[in-house]
Write a protein that binds this DNA or RNA. Structure first.
Lengths: 192, 192
DNA sequence: GTCTATATAAAGATAGAC
DNA sequence: GTCTATCTTTATATAGAC
């Protein structure tokens, strides 16, 4: 059934990759099976709740890891706003895009309300909230002046994630380099 | 067949609204028919090419209008970077999100390569390109100093569009007010 | 744990009556 | 231009053999 075997782990991993990349509706159970290299009927041995339960399990895990990952890189730059933002940028660029708008408007409406809320909250805790805390700390140190930090955090996150969507043909130079320049623009824009 | 009747226009309009909101895979022909108030078989009378051709036609139109709309508001603020960016922000917030990442990673892979390229290019011309031009003009006037304006334009567009994705419960105040404050952060960050 | 076979339902699509 | 009826394909899902 829903044991924690190696085979099951392979299924979860493939499902995570595909769901994150294409979204809930655009991924079929067959796609996942193909990625694992087994027949699609075999998938159901590992997921008694079917596709939607698989999505919930896999996305919950994904968001938790994302949250932990971003927390770790932030901790590495403690007390230094610039370093923290640079680490955050590097993290976001190193990960597949969370794509909150697709999550909220396409993916989550396809699953149950309660579970959609859980994932929605997790997404907030993994993206906006950590950046808001970094900005709050800097404000408490008197380094930046802005009152409402929510939309600043949103802008920073969305700007960094935009590097994923905008095709390489439209921007020259390495993404990380551009991201760091963008960080300078933001810091300059909000510092006291 | 593919005439330009009123009934056909109703189909296109409903399809546009749904495709833009939920994406290609999450919308069924039945959804569109239901929105129009007709049987789903009747839809095919208006779209000989089926669902994917409908998507292409409707999204092409949508992107062209978006491009014209953003051009119009930019023209209204000629010579004034702040005004132009404020108008752009108001435009983006007034429109449904373009959601370029979903477009590129979920929607376009489901349709043909050639047509995907066309829509991809249109999306670029409707979003990034106009903002880049505004920034270039300001640089030519000596108001801002940045060399690579592509990622600045991307950051501005993504930041404004983020107001659509981030639930109202996480940000207080009107979106337009916040957008204008964000514009000030960007201007301060890039001015000479 | 994976396969074949099969069931069920949904989606895309066409034909022909009105 | 819209409907009913029908067809085909695809997707989710289950049962049972190996």
């Amino acid at each position: 059934m829903s044991s924690n075997s190696e085979a099951r782990e392979r299924v979860l991993k493939a499902a995570e990759q595909l769901f994150v990349e294409r979204g809930y509706e655009a991924v079929t159970v067959k796609d996942i099976a193909k990625a694992v290299g087994i027949h699609h009927a075999s998938i159901y041995h590992h997921i008694p709740g079917g596709k939607s339960a698989l999505y919930v399990e896999v996305m919950t895990r994904h968001m938790q890891r994302y949250r932990e990952g971003i927390k770790a890189v932030i901790d590495r730059g403690q007390g230094d706003l610039r370093k923290q933002l640079q680490h955050i940028a590097a993290w976001i660029i190193s990960q597949p895009p969370v794509n909150i708008i697709r999550l909220e408007t396409s993916d989550l409406p396809s699953i149950g309300d309660t579970q959609a809320d859980n994932i929605s909250n997790l997404a907030f805790e993994a993206t906006l909230l950590p950046i808001m805390k970094v900005l709050e700390d800097a404000r408490n140190r008197g380094e930046i002046e802005h009152q409402n930090l929510g939309y600043i955090a949103g802008a920073i996150f969305a700007s960094m994630e935009a590097f994923h969507g905008i095709s390489n043909k439209y921007v020259d130079g390495s993404r990380l380099l551009m991201a760091n320049k963008l960080i300078e623009v933001f810091i300059r824009g909000i510092k006291v």
